[in-house]
Nucleic acid binder design. Structure first.
Lengths: 193, 193
DNA sequence: CGGGAAAGTTGAACTAGTTCAAAAAAGACA
DNA sequence: TGTCTTTTTTGAACTAGTTCAACTTTCCCG
């Protein structure tokens, strides 16, 4: 149950068996079936989660009611509304399972206890947040610099596993284009091969 | 020299006078005159900086040679290429002073010493990175959801001080539109008042 | 296995934003 | 103060991406 989580953490810091036991103790396994909502706009995000199995999306409903995907999370990725979770304020985001999923979750009070009792956790989440932030900066730059077809090619090159699992509608909502236009981009690209 | 920095830090964690002395010791004051480059694409970013005075921009040169602004930093803001600095790898970004500026800088080895000798610093930068990340998520969402005129209005509402200090070219490069189009947006908006 | 719903495709008309070029306005500084 | 440079404005022609509607394909589940 914790093997994927331990692997993920070892990428950033080393924990002894005892330390990892202490770290993982407050996490509980949450099952979510396809289409189940784990967070709705307006609620306070009660968890930070590590995806053990499945696929989820974090999305935003814009003024016209269109869904825009902030990010996806599959096995080995963390998922939360960082703003709502860290400040315990109302969320503007929604989180939904796109497949039957299993998520290791920790609540806000337990996470704070972890920070106090196991100071290495402080470094762990600092480093993880830095990396996530650098990745989002690269996406922001790409979104400022590239047209939709380049962003699409970038996406499927970077996340080939995701391309298989996601519908084109979901990818379009991530790329910030209409699904009709993504369909046209794909047609154009396939003609070139 | 350190008053602004101390104020900024107190927003996140409390440090005693001794602790703050220990914290601030490795920072040095760097002067930069208008148009001076502090980081060029390809270099390793040698500093993390706190802006005491002035205004700078972090930008990216896209394939067509256009400059896209990732962010601006004025008094009270931090500035670095987080990816290049934390991994000590070649940067894809450029940092330039838009006005004569003063930046309190710390180098990579000294920052690591701080993390070890003053564990609170770990929490400080974790919390700061989380907030910066949440802010970038909001910008990403806005960029996915809104047209240029809304993003412009959002920008000048959120950063009225910046609007005064930046040229329209710089704002356009931040919004991801051509400066000609920003000029047209401004004309349209001013007609509506 | 069949039928209904959801996802993907296509075309036509439209809109947001770009590009280029030229002129006007605003700064910079000797 | 004048002049040179940079920034901003404007218009015209263009391109990327949207919207809507109709159709086809895929998939889900009773």
């Amino acid at each position: 149950m914790y093997t994927l989580l331990r692997e993920n953490i070892e990428k950033h810091i080393h924990l002894t068996d005892e330390e990892f036991a202490q770290f993982s103790a407050p996490f509980y396994l949450q099952h979510a079936e396809k289409k189940q909502m784990l967070l709705r706009e307006g609620e306070v995000c009660k968890f930070e989660g590590f995806v053990n199995k499945g696929c989820l999306r974090v999305y935003y409903l814009d003024e016209s009611g269109f869904e825009k995907v902030l990010y996806f999370a599959v096995e080995g990725w963390w998922i939360t509304d960082i703003d709502s979770f860290t400040n315990q304020t109302a969320s503007i985001l929604n989180i939904e399972a796109l497949e039957d999923s299993e998520i290791l979750m920790i609540t806000y009070p337990y996470k704070n206890i972890l920070y106090e009792t196991l100071p290495k956790v402080e470094k762990l989440f600092r480093v993880m947040t830095q990396k996530t932030h650098a990745a989002l900066q690269r996406r922001m730059i790409s979104s400022l610099s590239n047209t939709a077809d380049k962003r699409y090619l970038e996406f499927i090159t970077k996340y080939p596993q995701l391309e298989q699992r996601l519908s084109q509608q979901q990818m379009a909502a991530y790329l910030g284009i209409s699904h009709e236009f993504l369909s046209k981009i794909r047609k154009k690209i396939s003609r070139l091969r």
